[in-house]
């Protein structure tokens, strides 16, 4: 894998930006070049949120992912907005607890993960983003398992260190899904 351009998208508050940040940190520890670019502005307040993560062996050009290799999507408006932008042969990972629509395209791979339900059933409400990240990791292997965990440790601030384990469990759920 030389280049991987991922677009995370969903509602504000689902941890879309955080999922991208964990990926970005893990890629940095893996020794890759990377960028993380959030959507910003009023859409962060309850509307749609998205972030672009680019990973490469060489310097990142445009950090804005227009045509993602992988779309990680956690709400219906984002699927409708970005479905057609995914590169042919690319991958769409959908939180099927929230998005009940199926992908119409036949030239992309699609993975449906019951992420929000999985999280809730395991006492990890609010950690569906990490379930999705776990599945992204399983599908793409964008870093080693060890570096993914180090990336998580770097991303969780010290004052929220008590949330580290629940995030770990959620990532594991995604990997097993």
């Amino acid at each position: 894998m030389s280049d991987l351009n991922v677009l995370f998208a969903g509602f504000g508050g689902q941890g879309i930006l955080f999922a991208g940040k964990v990926m970005a940190y893990a890629a940095m520890i893996e020794g890759k070049e990377l960028s993380w670019l959030p959507s910003y502005g009023p859409e962060m307040r309850g509307g749609t949120a998205s972030c672009s993560v680019c990973i490469s062996d060489k310097a990142i050009g445009s950090p804005l992912v227009v045509n993602p290799d992988v779309l990680v999507v956690m709400n219906l408006p984002s699927l409708e907005k970005f479905e057609n932008d995914v590169v042919p042969g690319g991958l769409i990972i959908i939180d099927s607890s929230i998005v009940h629509k199926k992908v119409a395209r036949t030239d992309v791979n699609v993975v449906y993960v019951d992420a929000s339900k999985l999280a809730e059933d395991n006492g990890l409400k609010g950690a569906a983003n990490m379930v999705m990240l776990g599945r992204l990791f399983k599908e793409t292997g964008f870093c080693s398992a060890e570096n993914l965990d180090l990336g998580l440790q770097k991303s969780v601030p010290a004052r929220k260190a008590n949330l580290l384990d629940s995030n770990r469990k959620a990532i594991a759920l995604g990997i097993e899904s």
Binding site: M28, L34, W36, L37
Partner: peptide, 10 residues
């Protein structure tokens, strides 16, 4: 600009 200001890089 807004892109360079908002983005994260190592």
């Amino acid at each position: 600009d807004g892109m360079l200001g908002q983005m994260m890089e190592p």
